[in-house]
Design a protein around this nucleic acid. Structure first.
Length: 419
DNA sequence: AATCCACAGGAAGCCCGGGAAC
DNA sequence: GTTCCCGGGCTTCCTGTGGATT
């Protein structure tokens, strides 16, 4: 191979993309179409520190991909810029409560962020009250307004980290020079019901709702990004509309629309096509769906995998739709065969509901009068695909393969009273 | 009209691992 | 290190349900 040949063809300028980074979820655009109203309101609320006053706490909710995080980051960035210009100490700290989800971690992260690397508190070990005192002292060491953004704040409650919300919404009374305001972001509107009433009223001083985008708005967003992301003329007519339409059906998720467009672009690039076609979008949609499923199945607990495997065997044997009792019996057999204690029907019923929520199976209640009332269960993905996923599983592999072999050879009685 | 099937799904409590508190 | 506590997975026990059958 001649020098440079291996990477040579990949360094040429893409026919399709100009800058694909613009399509990534982490990219923060300069303009956020159809969020002018939310940006305006948030800016008004957060403008108080520019006059030396404390802004209200804000609670924001909206489904995934409705621009919550982008809007907040954008407004906060502008605010900090303005603060520097006017020489006001304004600092925004962004926390993702998916990871930073306990009282300790929140306080430690905030403190470290304020210390700016000069020194730090350890990630574990300190008594919580000492940590809290340290946080107060560091925070109050200078005149400033601290705006704490807590993204996915609903995760805190699950982890019982909501005490820290109480700390933070009440902290102002203990501060001399600094002021704190909290922006909570959640995609679950009911989440506030679980909060301590005092926290709820304090956090909800101002509420901002981000409605889902409709198809036309999604199209605008895509257009905005696509002009920079793609080479001129690289998109076939209707591509953007199709991406938008797909995403609009799934509760107006802009992230989804952008993913779709990016993957469609990547597919067309891979096959050396001149432009992105509607067919590429269709395949991108399938790819994303499949990737999602693979990930879901892969991360399933082993009992659920076993259950799913039992269902798979039944479906492969020609049963289109299966009742709860049948799946349970199959599952019980497979478990025993593997030398495992089967779970009770009650538990399996819950596992089935979980599988349904994840979209792996569909169920519907079936009434057969005298012959009882049960759920009719069907698989939501092709058997071949599912089998591939399950066979790739380390835990199941040695046993399942032999089970499959037995099943194929007819070594099992899969029908009738032999069960 | 009463019965009864084959479950659905709620309530309570057990067990266990892991992390916080002492 | 020990103790305590909590949450998740699970079981046990239970009540509820719609319509074919009696």
């Amino acid at each position: 191979m001649r020098e440079g040949e291996l990477f040579g063809s990949w360094t040429e300028r893409s026919q399709i993309f100009r800058n694909r980074e613009l399509l990534r979820p982490s990219y923060l655009p300069e303009r956020l179409p159809h969020r002018e109203e939310q940006i305006g309101r948030l800016a008004r609320i957060l403008s108080f520190p520019l006059r030396g006053e404390t802004p209200s706490n804000v609670f924001i909710y909206g489904k995934t991909g409705t621009g919550k995080t982008a809007t907040v980051r954008y407004v906060l960035g502008e605010l900090e810029k303005m603060g520097r210009k006017l020489n006001r100490g304004i600092k925004g700290i962004y926390l993702n409560c998916e990871r930073v989800n306990t009282r300790y971690r929140v306080l430690a992260t905030l403190t470290n962020s304020l210390l700016n690397g000069t020194s730090s508190v350890p990630t574990t070990g300190w008594p919580i009250d000492v940590l809290y005192e340290t946080f107060l002292r560091v925070l109050d060491s200078e005149e400033r307004v601290l705006i704490i953004v807590m993204d996915e704040v609903d995760r805190m409650v699950v982890k019982k980290g909501d005490e820290v919300l109480y700390d933070l919404t009440r902290v102002n009374s203990e501060l001399e020079r600094a002021k704190v305001s909290v922006i909570g972001i959640s995609n679950d509107a009911r989440f506030t019901h679980y909060l301590d009433p005092r926290v709820r009223s304090s956090l909800g001083e101002e509420e901002l709702v981000f409605p889902p985008y409709d198809a036309l708005q999604l199209r605008d967003i895509l257009e905005e990004r696509a002009s920079g992301a793609f080479q001129p003329g690289a998109l076939e007519g209707g591509v953007l509309s199709l991406c938008a339409a797909h995403a609009a059906r799934e509760h107006g998720d802009a992230r989804r629309a952008l993913d779709l467009l990016r993957v469609a672009g990547e597919l067309s690039e891979q096959e050396g096509a001149m432009r992105v076609t509607l067919e590429h979008v269709r395949r991108a949609y399938e790819k994303l769906e499949e990737d999602k499923m693979v990930e879901i199945v892969r991360t399933l607990p082993s009992q659920s995998k076993l259950l799913l495997f039992s269902l798979l065997l039944l479906v492969e044997r020609g049963a289109e739709k299966v009742t709860t009792g049948e799946v349970y019996e199959a599952y019980r057999r497979v478990s025993l065969q593997k030398g495992l204690d089967p779970l009770t029907p009650r538990r399996v019923s819950d596992l089935l509901s979980e599988l349904e929520m994840l979209g792996v199976v569909s169920t519907r209640i079936l009434n057969s009068g005298r012959y009882g009332r049960t759920k009719e269960i069907s698989l939501n993905l092709p058997t071949r695909q599912l089998r591939k996923m399950l066979e790739g599983d380390g835990m199941l592999l040695p046993h399942t393969v032999s089970l499959l072999r037995q099943a194929k050879l007819g070594g099992w009685e899969w029908t009738g009273e032999a069960w």
